[in-house]
Amino acid sequence: MDLSLKFRRIALLAAFGIVLLYGLLVFALLGFVGEADLWETLWSPNTLSAIRISLLAATSSAILAMIIALPVAWALSRFRFPGSSWVDMLLEFPMIVSPAALGAMILMFFRSTPGEWIHSLGVDVVFAFSGIVLAQFLTTVGIAVRLIKAVLDEIPVRYEKVARSLGANSFQTFRGVVLPLSARGLLASGILVWAKALGEFGATITVAGSLPGKTETLPIAIFLELGKANLEGASVLILILLLFGVCVLALARLLLRRRQLA
C-alpha cells in the first residue's frame, strides 16, 4: 500500500479514536443523569447561584483579560523592543505552572508587604468574588495575549502605514483600521478566553475557596458533589458546564470561519 495513504489512514483512525473517547465519556456521563435529578439539581438554589457566579466571574475576568491583553498583543505583534522575547516567554507562565500552584502564589502575594498594602486599600481577594476574577484573569491573560497576537499578526502592517500617512494618528489608526479588521478574531478570542475562565478550577478554589452562594463556581460545585459521592448531582452540573462550553466553542468556530471567508 502507498505509504502516504497508510499514514493518512492511521491519522484518520487516531482522530476518530479521540472523538470516540470523548463520546464515550459523554455517554457515560449521560448514564448518570436521571430526569428527576436533572430538574431537581438544575433548579436548586445552589446550582443557580453557582451558574450565576461562574457566568459573572468568567465574563468579568475575560473582559479584563482582553482589555489588558489587547495593547500587549499589539506591541508584541508590531514592535521588536529590548526584552520582547522575554515578555513573550513570560506570558506562557500560567500555562506551565499548575493552576493550584498559581492560586497558592496569589495567596502568598497577599501575605507579602505589597499584597498587604493592597489589602489595606480595601481590596480583598481571599474567599471573595474578586479572588475568583483575579485567579481566572491570571490564568487566562497569557492565553488572551497569544490569541490576540495571532489575530493581529494576520493584519498586514501596511494598512496602518497607509492610515498614518493619510493623517490618522496611532490611536485613530488602531481604532479605525486595526480594530475593525480584527473584530471577528478578537470576538472569537474573547469567547475562547471566556470558556477557559468558565472552566477554571485549581487557582479559583485555592484563592477564593468554596463558599456556597459566594465563591462556589460550577467546577467547584462539581468537585464538592463528587466529594459527597453524589454522582447524579455532579453529572447534571457537568452537563451544564459542557453545554456552555460547546455553545461558545461553536460560536467561536463560526466567527473564525466567517473571518477566513471574509
Binding site: K161, V162, R164, S165, L166, G167, A168, N169
Partner: peptide
C-alpha cells in the same frame, strides 16, 4: 507621519 502631508 500624519503631520507630514505625505501620502504613502
Amino acid at each position: 507621519p500624519e503631520r507630514r502631508g505625505i501620502a504613502y
